[in-house]
Design a protein around this nucleic acid. Structure first.
Lengths: 245, 245
DNA sequence: AGTCAATAGAATTTGGAAATTATTGGCCGG
DNA sequence: CCGGCCAATAATTTCCAAATTCTATTGACT
């Protein structure tokens, strides 16, 4: 239980609604790996964990199920979405496809404000440590948020809410895999340079190079996870994998 | 695999769960335009309409909200997702982008079984009338299902559940626009030929031609809607449009 | 006249208990 | 010993009413 990680807010910034609050917490617990892939999500367990009633818990589960972070089977309850090497490969492939489109369009239609947002996002990200602990790895909610913001800023001008949302959904999925690996092998990578190269290519409007770098960045993330040889990562897509249920 | 319910059972084979049943009905009512874009969805109204309790209604609404067929605002309830010309243009653009990838990959990796499914889907579709009434337009659930099946068959082999699901979500959205226009201008189009040309290009593995035809098909659907000059279709994206809330 | 505050009414959200359905473990017959 | 059947248990799903929050209207004040 590492859920006190976001120390920014002293008291809980209660969302406007209990259901949304449970949604936020549950989503974070899944992304951090605090709730493990495939784990069963019993109503009563979640009710106690988040100190809420059953109705809002169920609402949060239904929302997450359509985002494929949670897997629903009628009359059989909910599970945390499963993971697998095959699933990661498929996810990685898909990310490269759609984020390439998003980046190309974003660069083509990008304006001054868009460029400034990218520079700003990079600056903030580069000043924040990857881990909230110096020696060992510990989930840093601030870095995760800024990392997401940076990649979002790159593709934000693609001109399609649909595509942008889809990319963000895939990034969520990839982040979960990344967390699973980070607890085992860290640090292994100079992410700052990768981000800087990518940003410079984008700002130079060198579309092909930017796309290639982004694709390499995505693949590297996946390779780190695959190379970690995680004991709990099966080869094939299991029954609780997203896309199966 | 979608059509059997229509023939055998005049009344629907109730889903395993009330929530899923309400979800199916509500989704259909939105796609057909029976519940109009932007319309408010009050709990009590839906409770009466579908003869269910509030909980399953709420579950269905939450599921549809993440699919952007319904728009949720915390503490202010649910609306049917709005429509607009700008929204349709954005949707069309996005469909061309992602369905191109899906089709290219599907053709590249397609096998014999995939080809057979396409032929079968086309055959079934071509034997079914677009409208369930001969003279005027009337929503034909069977044709709609088979039409969806045909386009799904083309891209089914793309190798990514993510991409396939995303395409299906966008197709749902486009179908809703198509229904809105069909009630006004019908028939204006020989869809059978379009589908046949597309199928033949795909089976001939003429990827570039197939992609071009698919893109034209998507654009034609959008143009018909735009040309219909629907009085209730605003130019700009409104407050209840998907991607905005 | 216009702005703002208070209030009454309507709608959404929530919690728990009842009903429905799956799962488990034991029993019987083959 | 194995496999199917049945009862007991556990979990999910559903309904409903209380509590919370929003909306519309009225009336006072500048």
């Amino acid at each position: 239980m590492v859920d006190e990680a976001q120390l920014d807010e002293p008291k809980k910034v209660t969302s406007t609604t209990v259901a949304s609050s449970v949604y936020d917490q549950l989503r974070l617990d899944i992304l951090t790996g605090d709730l493990r892939p495939g784990e069963k999500l019993r109503s009563e367990f979640l009710r106690d964990r988040y100190q809420a009633g059953i109705s809002p818990v169920r609402e949060a589960l239904n929302r997450l199920a359509t985002e494929r972070l949670v897997c629903r089977e009628d009359q059989r309850g909910f599970h945390v979405a499963g993971v697998s090497k095959a699933g990661l490969v498929e996810l990685t492939k898909t990310r490269c496809w759609v984020e390439e489109i998003a980046l190309r369009e974003s660069i083509e239609q990008g304006d001054d404000g868009w460029e400034e947002q990218i520079v700003l996002a990079f600056h903030r990200l580069s000043r924040t440590p990857r881990s909230s602990d110096d020696l060992t790895y510990a989930f840093n909610a601030k870095w995760e948020g800024l990392h997401r913001d940076f990649h979002t800023a790159l593709i934000a001008n693609c001109g399609s809410h649909w595509l942008l949302d889809f990319c963000l959904q895939l990034i969520d999925q990839a982040d979960r895999y990344r967390q699973l690996a980070a607890t085992v092998s860290y640090p292994k990578r100079n992410e700052r340079n990768e981000h800087q190269d990518l940003m410079e290519a984008v700002l130079a409007r060198d579309t092909d190079r930017a796309v290639a770098l982004q694709c390499a960045h995505i693949h590297k993330t996946a390779d780190i996870v695959l190379d970690a040889n995680l004991s709990f990562l099966p080869d094939e897509i299991g029954p609780a994998d997203p896309g199966r249920c």
